[in-house]
């Protein structure tokens, strides 16, 4: 009986300890990134390349998805709203859901699978082919030269992409609402403008996406850096980036929403 209990503790404890060790390593990793960030910002070219890599290459998927999400929101929302004779509030529905939630969250999920996985794969591959090690031996710190710029490239790109997602989404909602469903254009925009507050809704959405950007960029860079230097190791790490990012984004979204819109 006692033996079995010990074994049970061990079977729970061993993976738990491994997770905690990994978390501790991730914290140390984040501190390392922050310590080497000034060096990364001192070289805008490096940062530009990473913004291109994480941000520019994600524009297409973000804007196209945003457009479709906005259009679907408008179709679904119209169906529900018109039962209550409130179809003129469609603009409010589309804009608020996009700006507050869908822009930052769906944008972050897409960003994690497009850019996050690419960051993990690139860092993992550089590690597996000893490029990071070679850099170290050439007296160049890979933390400052590779990891920190990639991290900040992701952090900077995320809020811009989320804003693009919301903007194209609202435009998609407009396309469905006004030309297709025949709502009045003036009331569509004015009602929306009356109900959406810049500081409370738009800026809170931007703040959310900054948090998501930090989380995804950290997870992606860390998983790549921590990946076993094999083909299998890199592919698992890439998958883990997407899964962990998605979970962390959704959990973080709940916490941030609870803070931001409490009692309003």
């Amino acid at each position: 009986m006692g033996n079995r209990f010990v074994r049970l503790c061990q079977s729970i404890g061993a993976p738990l300890t491994a997770r905690i060790i990994k978390l501790g390593f991730a914290c140390r990793f984040l501190l390392g990134i922050l310590r080497h960030s000034p060096a990364a910002f001192a070289r805008p070219q490096l940062l530009a390349r990473e913004i291109w890599f994480a941000g520019v290459l994600s524009i297409l998927i973000i804007t196209v998805s945003g457009l479709f999400v906005g259009m679907v929101l408008a179709l679904q929302g119209y169906d529900t709203l018109q039962r209550f004779g409130a179809s003129s509030s469609l603009g409010i529905l589309v804009a608020l859901s996009l700006v507050r939630e869908l822009g930052p969250v769906v944008g972050a999920l897409l960003f994690a699978s497009r850019a996050g996985s690419a960051i993990t794969a690139e860092i993992g591959l550089m590690k597996a082919t000893e490029q990071l090690s070679a850099m170290e031996m050439m007296a160049v710190n890979p933390m400052a030269r590779v990891i920190a710029p990639k991290f900040w490239g992701g952090v900077i790109s995320m809020p811009l992409l989320a804003a693009m997602f919301s903007a194209t989404g609202i435009f998609g909602g407009y396309l469905i609402g006004v030309p297709l469903l025949g709502l009045d254009e003036g009331s569509f925009w004015s009602q929306m403008q009356g109900a959406v507050d810049f500081r409370l809704d738009v800026m809170n959405g931007v703040i959310k996406s900054v948090f998501f950007g930090c989380a995804i960029a950290l997870i992606a860079a860390f998983e790549g850096y921590d990946a076993p230097p094999t083909a299998e190791g890199i592919s698992t790490a890439t998958t883990r980036t997407v899964v962990t990012s998605a979970l962390v984004v959704l959990a973080l979204d709940f916490v941030l929403t609870a803070f931001m819109f409490r009692g309003v």
Partner: peptide
């Protein structure tokens, strides 16, 4: 390390 050079197994270019 600036005074060392290292050649890696597969070059690590």
């Amino acid at each position: 390390r600036t005074r060392m050079g290292m050649l890696f197994q597969f070059g690590a270019l």
